[in-house]
Amino acid sequence: MGKQAVLDAYQGKYTPVVPWVPYVGVHGAYLIGETATTVLQDADLLAKAVVNAAARYKADGIPLVFDLAVEAMSMGIEAKWFDDNPPTVIAHPLVDKSLAEANLSIPGPQDGRWPVIIEAGKKAKAQLGDVALIGLACGPLTLASHLRGAKIFTDMVKKPELAMEIMEFAAKVTAESARIYAEEIGCDIVALVEPVGSQVRPETYDKFVIPACQEAIDKIHGADKVSALYICGDATKIVENMMYTGCQCVCVDEQLNMNYVRDGAMKYGRGFGGNLKLTLALSLGIIDPREDAIVSLAAGGKVGYTFSPG
C-alpha cells in the first residue's frame, strides 16, 4: 500500500490492494480547527491540514489543494472567499473584452497565490512519507468559463474562432499550473480538474477540450510524473472521449456507473477512480458509506482502480 500503489493504479496496473485517495479539500482546514480562508492563504497551515488529513484517513494519496480558483486569482481575477468552501471566481474579464484588451498574462510561480501553494506543497511533501501528493490544475475549459463566463458555450457554436483563442490561452495557463505542480513542488501525480467538462457535448469536448489538455499533459509526463483527469458531474456521455484526452487515469463522480467507467478505462489501458457517493453517503448518510464502499470496490476490481469519493 502507499504511494506506489496509487502510482501503479493511476497507470492502469494491477495492485494487490486497492489504494485509497480521499479528496479532502478544505475539509482538511476543518479537521485542524481552521477556516478555508485562513488555511488556503497560509503555507504552514495548508501543509499541516494536508498532512493531518492524510494521517487521519490513512490515505495512500492526497491532493495538495482542491481549489479551481487558484489560476484565475493568480491572474488578478476577482473571487470571493468562503470559510467553508474554496473561493469562487466572481468576475469574467473576457465577457466584454478581448484577450488583448484584458491584458491577461500566464501566472508563474511568483504570481498571485502560487508562492503560498508552492511553499505548502514542499512542506507537505517532506512530511507525507509513503503518501502520493497530487497536484490539481484547473482544466482549460473550466478556466475558459472563468474568463468568459457562460458565453464561452455559445462562442463554441457561434464564434468558434474566439472560443478557440480563449481555450488556447487557458491551455497555456493550465500547462504552467501543471508544470508548477510537477516540477516546482514535485507532486507525484498531477490531475487536470474539469468540472465543466461533463456539461458539454462530446463533439465540443473533442474539438475544444482534448487539444487544450495536451500541453499540460506533456508538461506532466515531461517531468516524469503521472497524469490524471478529474471530471465532476454526469460525464457518461464523454467517458470514451475522456480516455482519448491522453491522461493516464480518469476519475469520476458519484453519478457515473463504475462498471461502465471501468470497462472504458480497461479498454484503453487507463487507470480509473471513484466513486464513493460524496453526497448521499458521506455528507448525508442516506446510504450506508460502508455498503457504498463495498459496491465501488467490487465494481472497480484490482486492475487500475483507485478508491476515492465521487
Binding site: 458565453k151 457535448r201 458531474g233 454526469d234
Partner: peptide, 22 residues
Amino acid sequence: RVLPTLCVNQELSYESIIPTLD
C-alpha cells in the same frame, strides 16, 4: 436524474448540459 439540471416550468430542460444562448 443527473446533476446539475436546469428546470424550466418544472420540466427537466437541461440535464448536465450548459445551453447556448440560442
